[in-house]
Nucleic acid binder design. Structure first.
Length: 557
RNA sequence: GCCCACGUAGCUCAACGGACAGAGCAACAGGCUUCGGACCUGUAGGUUCCGGGUUCAAAUCCCGGCGUGGGCACCA
């Protein structure tokens, strides 16, 4: 609904510009609170054209501007060269409340949009997910939720790298070391993987056996295939459990090897060979320098076997036939991402989009599954939930243990998800326990608490229609404004493929509600009906936003 | 060495090229006569890494440094 206000402001402005024959793009931005609800800095741009000061132009325009009757614009003021638009809260409030209540869980949802294949997590099946993979999974899952809400038909995919050296080492290790069946399956695989790597380091001559394993796997040796698949599946079983706890689910698991087996890689190679970018040397490679990539891209070795990126080209062509493609990848894949884009362009396919996130490292350096240096996602979640339990117990000691445990689970998981998603992906992070487990005041629990407070009020009263809109307090106005902005935030997040604006939005909303709660009594108020409805609208919006972040809205906590 | 990203309060992070750079944590000072205090109010804290440039306007864009992370395999 805030967007309706924006549109009203735009149209009013457009009209006078047109009347004066001025062609200038209209941009409206969020001003400081004291300057209204939307601001147009257009007079600064017009100043050199009209040869007048911005302030003078603003004064002129504000006199001419006409606010249409049904508009959500209350008034327009000129100040310091800006045109400031003020929202008519009394008009907006009843419309907004009605709309939010009518739409409920669909408030903010957008119309049907296209299909998107979203790949995320895609960790090597050589051990449990560590916190770095966690960043990938949480960014990916949150984006999937947002895009789905924005009307897209989303299919989330986990690409299983079953043709890589890592899995080969696992298979090699499984022939030599005992798999601990009592452990969580991904942990058990990691144990074997780490042991195998140690052995390989001590006896480098064994590397030949790894290569042979890979060759046999690619060649289609039935027995070897069985070993690889069993190992990968066993590991993924554990990975899936970790993700489940974080409320993350993949629609499909796509196996790298399938593109070799169905010879789509061969077909792609043939197509690529027909382009002018092939470099004819000892090996088959591509010259991508015209795309600003100096490094040549090798597609096949001397013996004719393919490389990882080659298979990924076939994989991406397959994906692009299903819809738009978005990949959530780590910063170590930046080059491959650029190469893939270039190749897809060469082949006349739509280029995939990439969400690249920077690494999470430990204070002592980068993580390595191979060396066993990592903090697993399970550990992090477990600690977070444990920590949450302590907090719940402190506040709700009298409640049943079942209740406290379930709240702790939601709060712990929510905190992990929120702490990751609030940081933009392009920032690298150094993991510190104290920080990861610090339930900062303004984090997931803060928002969940706002939701619980709203539910608490609504529980105690019958919700009717909102009645007349009273004169609004500042706290009410702010709350109304923020609620009305929700659909716009969704649109922004969906368009920019970013989750962090939603993360800060939900904080703003919770914050505004907490303040409202503090200063504006609901049940004892003269405006009880209206305020109850405002609480309900807040509750609905909070709930929708929390669901998109994968954080459970709790009626009680 | 070359390529890419990042550098904002003591710490963790925000800020479509726009008004005085904002939150939280930590510090300090307040608020239970409660619809649940996982809350609210206030004070203090800044050369937006440094130096140039473009612009009416730069944390944001461009150029050059410095620092951190990542890439530069017939690995994945």
């Amino acid at each position: 609904m805030f967007q309706d206000f924006k549109k009203d402001a735009e149209e009013a402005l457009e009209k006078i510009l047109k009347a004066r024959n001025i062609e200038q793009k209209i941009v409206l931005e969020k001003p400081e609170e004291e300057f209204g609800d939307l601001a147009a800095p257009i007079c600064f741009e017009l100043a050199p054209v009209l040869k007048k000061s911005p302030a003078a132009i603003a004064e002129e325009l504000v006199k001419q501007i006409k606010i249409p009757k049904g508009s959500l614009v209350k008034e327009v003021k000129a100040f310091r060269g800006y045109l400031n638009f003020y929202l008519d809260y009394e008009k907006l409030a009843p419309l907004l409340i009605k709309k939010v209540r009518r739409l409920g869980e669909n408030y903010g949802r957008e119309k049907k949009n296209g299909k998107i294949v979203l790949e995320h997590t895609s960790a090597n099946p050589d051990g449990p997910l560590h916190i770095g993979h966690g960043r990938n999974a949480i960014i990916g899952d949150t984006l999937a939720r947002i895009l789905r809400f924005a009307g897209h038909d989303i299919e989330t995919q986990f690409y299983v790298n079953d043709m890589g050296k890592q899995l080969a080492v696992v298979v090699w290790g499984l022939r030599r070391f005992k798999l601990d069946r009592n452990k969580k399956s991904d942990e058990a695989i990691a144990e074997v993987y780490i042991q195998a790597n140690r052995l390989l380091e001590e006896n480098p001559e064994n590397e030949k056996e790894i290569s042979e394993l890979l060759r046999n796997y690619e060649a289609g040796d039935k027995k070897v295939i069985k070993e690889f698949e069993t190992a990968a599946k066993y590991c993924i079983e554990g990975i899936t459990k970790t993700l489940e706890r974080l409320k993350i689910k993949h629609d499909t698991f796509v196996w790298e090897s399938s593109f070799v087996r169905d010879s789509s890689v061969d077909r792609v190679i043939r197509k690529i060979k027909a382009t002018k970018f092939v470099r004819h040397g000892e090996v088959l490679s591509l010259d991508l320098s015209s795309f600003g990539i100096e490094k040549e891209l090798v597609l096949a070795r001397k013996d004719g076997t393919y490389l990882y990126t080659t298979r990924d080209i076939a994989h991406h062509i397959w994906k692009s036939t299903q819809g738009s493609v978005i990949n959530v990848w780590g910063a170590d894949h930046k080059l491959v991402a650029a190469q893939l884009k270039a190749v897809l362009k060469i082949l006349g396919q739509k280029e995939p989009e990439f969400i690249i996130y920077e690494f999470i490292s430990l204070p002592e350096g980068s993580m390595s599954t191979r060396k066993g240096i990592f903090i697993s996602l399970d550990e992090l979640v477990e600690e977070s939930v444990k920590r949450a339990y302590v907090e719940v117990n402190k506040r709700r000691g009298e409640e049943s243990d079942k209740f406290k445990k379930s709240v702790a689970e939601s709060v712990g998981v929510g905190a992990v998800r929120y702490n990751i998603v609030k940081v933009s992906p392009e920032k690298s992070m150094v993991f510190k326990w104290e920080e990861a487990l610090d339930f900062e005041r303004q984090g997931a629990p803060f928002v969940q608490y706002a939701y619980a407070r709203a539910c608490g009020i609504l529980e105690k009263a019958e919700l009717e229609s909102s009645g007349d809109t009273p004169v609004l307090t500042e706290n009410e106005k702010l709350l109304i404004k923020i609620i009305s902005k929700f659909p716009g935030v969704i649109e922004e997040c969906a368009n920019t493929r970013k989750a962090s604006p939603l993360a800060s939005y939900v904080l703003d909303l919770a914050n505004a509600f907490h303040r409202f709660y503090m200063f504006e009594p609901v049940l004892k108020s003269e405006q009880k009906e209206f305020r109850l409805n405002l609480v309900e609208a807040t509750r609905i919006t909070l709930r929708n936003a929390l669901n998109l972040l994968g954080i459970e809205p709790l009626e009680r906590m």
